[in-house]
Design a protein around this nucleic acid. Structure first.
Lengths: 211, 211
DNA sequence: TAGATTGTTAATCGATTAACAATC
DNA sequence: TAGATTGTTAATCGATTAACAATC
């Protein structure tokens, strides 16, 4: 019964640890303490230890964490390098930027197609139409959909039936997308940079919150 | 003493309400209930009511919220349309995209300069050098710094002394930036889309979390 | 009056912190 | 042995939920 272990919270913290440990490795740091990890987050060292306790054998009492081993354990648990296959749906100037962005390749996601109206040369990725998306997903075993604009509901549903099991949305209006994903019980992440920007403005306007 | 009112949490939820109400207005919806707002979030209707209770006069019992009035109250509180002045620091292909992105102008942030190595024509914004940044900030009363790459620490500190009172970072490695901001007690928001992407992958890998 | 819905208080639940045992 | 640090249990704290009063 002590096993409630804050799954929700850990799910948002573990990727941060992964990122921090990556930086440590890049700098040749192979050993660290929970306090050193916590210093780069907004959490306490105790919270870090609790989260990382599940990765047995990656730490020694009185010594700290083995960065390399812990990093690999995190990769394993988080599904990094699992080579999820993805299709990006989008248009215009942003598309090539997103396609070429290391965000995907670096963290083990394989981009295997784009849905776009206009031809995007110089991007050596298969271009497909909305109508072909479901067939393509099935044939290529695509699991991840990256949306720069919403897809029409029927196509989205068809894609899910064709094996899509996760949606990463960057759309300004994601309400329809979220509704369908909830209905199909498929995990979804919708990014809204504007929320952070505005909360920052609010804090700039009301600095007393710091006290 | 009942006045602890969950400031931290509200700060992350209020921008969402703002965004949702914006959509409602765009669709000509001038009245809504807490349940209708909650439906577009991951929170309960009670949580929404509690958050919005501070905006007195924007709701009537038995009726719901006056979308227009509530939206305006939120804008006022959040500092939207306060016309914060901003400088963007960045390079390459992304720069014009960010500069032209409605993210800033739509929500009342006035872009008045960019720090970039190469000349970026067709962007009618003043281009300044790193060295000139502090002077420029002071002269133009710039409050917000948008970082697409980290600034050297001395320049960052000088900029803060010159009036920068908020940092919006999109840098992959924001550790130095956060450290300086913490030291100066200046609010900062660092975006890490990769964290969301990876937590999504993790959920795709371990679907049991849903049950 | 009945229905709807906000606003608020009290009860529950979960997460964070504090303290400390374990051990390298 | 002393110092450092993880791992875990118990205590505290805060946030969410449930219940209901207020009122349009």
């Amino acid at each position: 019964m002590t096993k409630s272990t804050d799954v929700r919270g850990a799910m948002t913290r573990l990727p941060q640890y992964y990122r921090i440990l990556r930086h440590f490795l890049q700098e040749g740091i192979y050993r660290c303490s929970s306090a050193e990890i916590a210093a780069h987050t907004e959490y306490s060292a105790v919270a870090v230890r609790k989260d990382l306790a599940r990765f047995a054998g990656c730490a020694k009492q009185g010594y700290g964490y083995y960065v390399k081993q812990l990093y690999q354990a995190l990769c394993e648990y988080l599904g990094v390098h699992d080579q999820f296959r993805a299709v990006i749906v989008g248009e215009g100037d942003v598309l090539p930027l997103v396609v070429r962005h290391p965000l995907f390749s670096v963290h083990g996601i394989r981009l295997c197609g784009i849905v776009a109206q206009s031809d995007a040369p110089s991007l050596d990725v298969t271009r497909i139409t909305e109508a072909d998306l479901p067939t393509f997903c099935r044939a290529q075993r695509v699991g991840l959909l990256v949306l720069l604009r919403p897809l029409p509901e029927p196509i989205l549903r068809a894609a899910m039936e064709a094996g899509i099991c996760g949606i990463f949305s960057l759309c300004e209006d994601d309400r329809a997308t979220r509704a369908v994903a909830a209905d199909c019980a498929i995990p979804v992440r919708c990014l809204h940079p504007v929320d952070d920007l505005i909360s920052l403005c609010c804090e700039m306007k009301h600095p007393q919150n710091e006290a």
